[in-house]
């Protein structure tokens, strides 16, 4: 009966109660994860959830993969079998997954200041925990956060949002239901400079509609940026607070010892 759901009803509501330009709820968790990851982030857009761990910059396992003038970025994606409603195991060689990781690599290569770390490697491991549309968008945003969390110098945030069009009305941040039905485009922007880091589209979209959606998705990226920045600041604040309290405690001890 899924086809019986209206994407955008006469009252201007989407199937999940949002209006056209409303994004899904975002939750960001930057607490450390994995064994010894240098930075990690778990991010969810509505019911799409991904977790990213960043290792590095570190020495490459294989020398052949290194560059003498910059760091190599390695993106690996695992999609949990339980992430979509129908259980499906995707192996490492799955073409879809390879394509996704390649897209991410190409997006982040110019954003990460790789020339600071010649002959080293930055590993980005992405785990997709739950899928409900906007997978690429979630991956981009979570990777940005994990890289920041790892302290890897970036030129800017990269914030991605998916936009689609229903008849002539643009919609932002599509769920899986909407994604299956509508032509859609994912746009990643760098909010400080306004540069576009990624535009990708797998469906046909009328050229007249493209510009509007492209612009809207860019704008929405800036809105997401605010949310991401707040999360980073909060996390940093937490860390600073924690460090200060540790410092204080340690300080008293020192005073006591000596």
């Amino acid at each position: 009966m899924s086809s019986r759901i209206e994407i955008l009803n006469a009252g201007g509501y989407r199937s999940d109660g949002r209006r056209q330009y409303e994004l899904r709820t975002i939750s960001i968790d930057l607490s450390p994860r994995g064994s010894g990851a240098d930075g990690s982030a778990t991010l969810s857009h509505g019911l799409t959830q991904v977790s990213v761990c960043v290792f590095g910059p570190r020495e490459a396992k294989m020398r052949s993969q290194t560059f003498h003038d910059r760091a190599n970025i390695n993106v690996e994606i695992g999609i949990a079998a339980f992430s979509s409603s129908e259980r499906r195991k995707r192996g490492r060689g799955d073409k879809r997954v390879l394509e996704l990781s390649h897209t991410l690599k190409a997006t982040f290569e110019p954003v990460i200041q790789t020339s600071l770390y010649p002959r080293s490697q930055i590993d980005i491991y992405i785990q997709v925990l739950q899928q409900d549309g906007g997978l690429l968008q979630a991956c981009v945003n979570a990777t940005t956060l994990a890289l920041i969390n790892a302290g890897i110098p970036l030129y800017d945030f990269v914030c991605a949002v998916t936009g689609g069009v229903h008849s002539t009305s643009p919609l932002l941040d599509l769920t899986l239901l909407e994604e299956n039905d509508l032509p859609n485009v994912t746009v990643a922007v760098m909010p400080r400079t306004g540069k576009v880091a990624l535009v990708t589209m797998e469906t046909r979209l009328h050229v007249d509609r493209f510009e509007e959606i492209f612009r809207l998705a860019g704008e929405a990226g800036k809105v997401i940026h605010g949310e991401m920045k707040r999360a980073v600041k909060e996390r940093t604040q937490d860390l600073v607070n924690a460090m200060q309290s540790v410092g204080k405690a340690a300080g008293t001890e020192v005073v006591d010892e000596y």
Binding site: R18, Q20, Y21, E22, T25, S85, L172, E219
Partner: peptide, 22 residues
Amino acid sequence: VEITIRKRPQTEAVITQRKFFK
């Protein structure tokens, strides 16, 4: 247009999330 993020607190998940089998 104004772009906003709709918040859906985890605490309300009982009524804001729906699970069914198909």
